[in-house]
Design a protein around this nucleic acid. Structure first.
Lengths: 231, 231
DNA sequence: GCAAAAGTGTTGTGACTACACCCATGG
DNA sequence: CCATGGGTGTAGTCACAACACTTTTGC
């Protein structure tokens, strides 16, 4: 680790990462924020982020951001991480020119549930509620995930290995922003073999009634519509 | 411009941009490279790139990279520029930790034709032909454009305002890597209103014969399948 | 029995594929 | 009149949306 002082031109932007950590909580899309304890924007709720070190990859920096800003809950879980984009407005950070590489992080419902103090329904967050350009980053992240739901098995990241098919539908509905036809949803996802039925039945815990559902899981072959033909 | 010397921690990655400049030349996909005149990899053909300054956006740096590395031909033309991704391998640059934001640049056929010394058919470039991780960047760029052809009017960037419908088909075929049915291609693009027929006829220049084609142009409404429903 | 939730089946509509065919021009 | 490339039409197949119906549970 080289921390010696020596002449250096200051013509270099600072590089940081910010993480948009998303999960479905009680059927609606939530984002995990933390409260800043330093200036600028001290006291504001913001996306977890850190400056990138020379000896770590961007993804490693993203994981560190989660550890340092949010702490325990995520560190033991596997978090799906995906690079989103670089945000580079000249004045996005009052401390000086900073380019941020944003990452999308996706967590399971039960993990999301444990982020008591951090989680926030995404729908409640309006332009101006977040510092820096974090609102733009958040919107971009949601749009990206929405797009990926169409042609990848990205929804897998929100669910445990075995899940009710309705829980999956809730994921889709939370992102697409409207309700879907139950039986068509089911028929389609089974036909394209994105998911498959298992012979496991859900044990009834706190259910009011109704037929106990089979549990489903994602099939192996991930991306499915990527290579569909155009004409 | 602050270039004074003063104590600074060296724990910051360098930030650069690289541009994958693509065009269709004689029906096949070409990429614009330049010959490096400095170490490392002096003499090698590489993607044009520069280190980012604090007072310029990433896109501005991408434009500067084209100017400084390739020079005139592109500077007068409008180049479609789109951010691709950040490439961040710890050892991708032997000079030290450098994170590169890659941009995709798309140019028209006639512009591509003028890049005599720079252009290279993408199909000829194999793993190991390019320095740094430029081969990975190139592949990623092509995959991205291929995807965008499906649901945006990105092909517009490769063509002049008025074009033969067959020239458009060549763009699609160059990226998709296989030939398409002529009449289905035509019917589909017209039905989804990505393009429209004009009453301009192509004047016969060096044509061997055949019915003179109408010229077409892209309609206003750009992206078209983005909000198509999933189920 | 009734409500609730899971799961199956049907039917009309519309899109896509693979062709075959017609049109207009140069030589 | 023929080769060449542009442009139109059609029939079979398949996917999708909407909706009705059946099954299995809790109370």
């Amino acid at each position: 680790m080289n921390t010696t002082t020596r002449p250096v031109k200051l013509e270099r932007p600072i590089l940081s990462v910010d993480v948009v950590l998303l999960g479905i909580y009680r059927g609606s899309l939530s984002v995990v924020l933390y409260t800043r304890d330093k200036e600028p924007y001290k006291g504001a709720r913001a996306l977890p982020g850190v400056a990138v070190r020379t000896d770590e990859t961007l993804e490693a920096a993203a994981i560190r951001a989660l550890k340092e800003r949010i702490g325990d809950p995520a560190s033991n879980e596997r978090v799906y991480l995906d690079q989103l984009a670089a945000f580079d407005g000249l004045h996005r950070d009052p401390r000086g020119r900073t380019v941020s590489i944003a990452y999308i992080g996706l967590i399971q419902a039960d993990t999301a549930a444990r982020y008591e103090k951090f989680r926030e329904p995404a729908a409640n967050i309006r332009e101006g509620d977040l510092p820096f350009d974090h609102h733009l980053i958040l919107r971009t992240a949601i749009t990206r995930v929405k797009g990926k739901l169409r042609y990848t098995n990205i929804a897998k990241a929100f669910l445990p290995e075995y899940f009710r098919i309705e829980a999956l539908q809730e994921v889709y509905e939370a992102f697409l922003g409207h309700s879907l036809n139950r039986s068509n949803f089911r028929n389609k996802l089974l036909k394209i073999k994105l998911i498959e039925q298992t012979d496991v039945l859900q044990e009834a815990v706190g259910k009011k009634g109704g037929r106990p559902p089979h549990l489903y899981r994602f099939t192996q072959d991930g991306v499915y519509a990527q290579d569909r033909d155009f004409v």
